[in-house]
């Protein structure tokens, strides 16, 4: 087995795995830039995952399913934001509450509608469209790694670009960043900082809805707690990516690669699955610590 045979599928998988991280982190970035901690990413992904697949099954349309799934996710995100901002609840606690609500609500509704609290299969669901250009499929590297993914993958790349433009090239982006740096300054200008914070949270609801939709639609099923820590990893990717869209792309890739490698190792080497699944968390902690050591060094003369 030569290295290309090993590396290409690995990287191909990485790109698939990193996409939910990337989407959730990009949305979370808007919340973060508005000066709020978005612990709720995890729960929002779960909400998006459940409602997209359910609506897709009910309507028979993937597109409608995703659209409605995102809508519900944004409603839950709005509740999270409104309670934090208007009712002045601790944003960290209300984030945890959102996660708890998401895991409770999805199971309760699953039980109510499907009489089942385990895996719910949707067999008649259409497959997610894959994006391929036949002519380019043959090009080595490009074809092997970057083509043949579901549309969500390419959407997430567009999202990176879009995030960059919105954050650095629009009045909204300036005001949002200003809010995160100094709310009083924004208020003194006669702007309403809370509106920008809510917007930041709604955007995270949008992208988490997408991320969740990807998880269930590619599987054709809903699994309880299918978000499985992805929201937390996305949160760390925001910090590791230094709160910049491109940085987040790179950080998400790193996490995707770690998981992809551990998936391979699981089959190739005889290491217990639980250990390998613990691996990304430990890498993340290590990355966080290294990052803070670096920051610490920088701040000390």
């Amino acid at each position: 087995m030569n290295s290309a045979q090993f590396a290409f599928p690995l990287l191909h998988n990485t790109i698939g795995i990193m996409t939910p991280f990337l989407l959730a982190a990009l949305g979370g970035l808007f919340t973060e830039l508005g000066g709020m901690l978005n612990i709720a990413l995890e729960g929002l992904i779960l909400i998006g995952a459940f409602f997209s697949v359910v609506f897709a099954a009910f309507t028979g349309s993937l597109f409608l399913g995703v659209l409605l799934g995102i809508a519900v996710t944004m409603i839950i995100a709005w509740i999270f934001g409104a309670i934090s901002i208007y009712l002045k609840a601790n944003v960290f606690i209300s984030g945890l509450a959102t996660n708890l609500l998401a895991s409770g609500l999805t199971v309760v509704l699953a039980f109510q509608f499907f009489g089942n609290k385990g895996v719910i299969l949707f067999q008649d669901l259409p497959k997610l469209p894959k994006f391929t250009i036949a002519a380019l499929q043959r090009v080595p590297l490009l074809g092997d790694i970057f083509l043949g993914h579901s549309v969500f993958v390419y959407l997430s790349w567009v999202a990176v670009l879009l995030a960059y433009v919105v954050i650095y090239r629009t009045p909204f982006g300036y005001r949002l960043r200003g809010t995160g740096i100094d709310q009083k300054a924004i208020r003194a200008l006669g702007l309403n900082p809370q509106r920008y914070q809510i917007a930041g949270i709604l955007i995270s609801g949008f992208t988490c809805g997408l991320a969740g939709a990807l998880l269930t639609l590619q599987l054709g099923a809903f699994v309880p707690n299918i978000s499985a820590g992805r929201g937390w990893i996305a949160l760390v990717a925001i910090y590791l990516g230094n709160k910049k869209p491109l940085g987040i792309l790179i950080a998400s890739f790193v996490f995707g690669l770690a998981e992809s490698v551990s998936n391979y190792a699981q089959g190739a080497i005889n290491v217990p699955a639980d250990f390998i699944l613990a691996f990304p968390y430990l890498i993340t902690v290590a990355a966080m610590i290294l990052f803070s050591i670096w920051q610490h060094r920088k701040s000390v003369v």
Partner: peptide, 15 residues
């Protein structure tokens, strides 16, 4: 009430 990381012009026109 200025945003330190923005330029003079960006601060002035903000809003």
């Amino acid at each position: 009430t200025l945003i330190p990381s923005f330029t003079v012009a960006e601060n002035i026109v903000l809003g």
